[in-house]
Design a protein around this nucleic acid. Sequence first.
DNA 1: GTCTATAAAAAGATAGAC
DNA 2: GTCTATCTTTTTATAGAC
Lengths: 195, 195
Amino acid sequence: MARTAGSHSDITGPRIRGAALKLFARQGYAAVSMRQIAAEVGVQAGALYNYTPDKQSLLFDLMRAHMQELLETWRARPLVGGPLRRLEEFTRFHIRFHLGRPEEVFIAYMELRNLSPENFTVIEGLRRDYEDALEGILREGVAEGVFEVPDPKIATLAVIAMLTGVNTWYRAGGRLSLDQVETIYWDMVRKAVVG
Amino acid sequence: MARTAGSHSDITGPRIRGAALKLFARQGYAAVSMRQIAAEVGVQAGALYNYTPDKQSLLFDLMRAHMQELLETWRARPLVGGPLRRLEEFTRFHIRFHLGRPEEVFIAYMELRNLSPENFTVIEGLRRDYEDALEGILREGVAEGVFEVPDPKIATLAVIAMLTGVNTWYRAGGRLSLDQVETIYWDMVRKAVVG
DNA sequence: GTCTATAAAAAGATAGAC
DNA sequence: GTCTATCTTTTTATAGAC
């Protein structure tokens, strides 16, 4: 059955989000024009407005989808073992998830200031939920005497900053396998929080 | 002695750099216009071009000055003690220096992609020099058997990422003093690299 | 749903008066 | 050294034909 000429609504939407993801990650939200996004997709700029009310929504939708997937993927994992085992799970999960989505991660960290105030509040809430997952593990470990952490909140932020930093240097096909990288970071995380 | 009307070359230059620093840090390089910078200084946009050839040079000069001051301040410190002592020095120095310059640090990390290729190469070289300072300490500690680090290069990047992360949450006048923050991070760094 | 065309605003940078 | 004025380009977003 022939498709109506010019009708591609089922694929154009995802392609627009994909183009925005790629371009925002490479050049930054403010430096990317709607025309560039349209050119990447292969349509004219005006057509974009059938899929997004404005440029801001494009950014917000990307960031929200990323943060929600991060949270839901973590929460869907089976809860096994004590704090030490779960901290290792978190460490390896965080590295693997983030290295698998470098563009989304880059945008999520770099473009917070380009969100409208209302959108910023939403994304900050999701980020906070994710941090709470790690903080819960650390507090549990402290309560059980497994971890020695003077300030669980700061340790949470320090560990996440350290782990996320892997995205700045890791490239697939490099000197170390993903599993080796996970193990090296887990070694540092474990030693840092175990008394 | 009366000054020539409209002549302020000795103070306008620094004021332009200060305004650019503030605005680039808050809104991002691409989102800031030359007119905004001029308004912040209290001059018209055209006057800026007496002090900078273009917007790109404004960004580059800020980043280069920051990285050079970071390197020179570190190198000016007396070299005392063994690897453990020097790692503590580095940790406390890094936190104190970075928390004292939140805007410069933010720009140095967020605006790399807005540098021209040639300017990017220069800044990356300075950043690499700074990383080498820490890597040297770690390698020395490994050689002396004080540190147990499977991969000094990765440990360098991990430690710097962790320490720089303090800028995302620390605010003067908060629950913890600067010295307390330094001590908490030093505790984690020490444990992470000592076998 | 996509196109062309355009409105309306803002951008980087320059020219020339003072 | 700073100003006003302007050139030239680019921007986001919309209107209306197909």
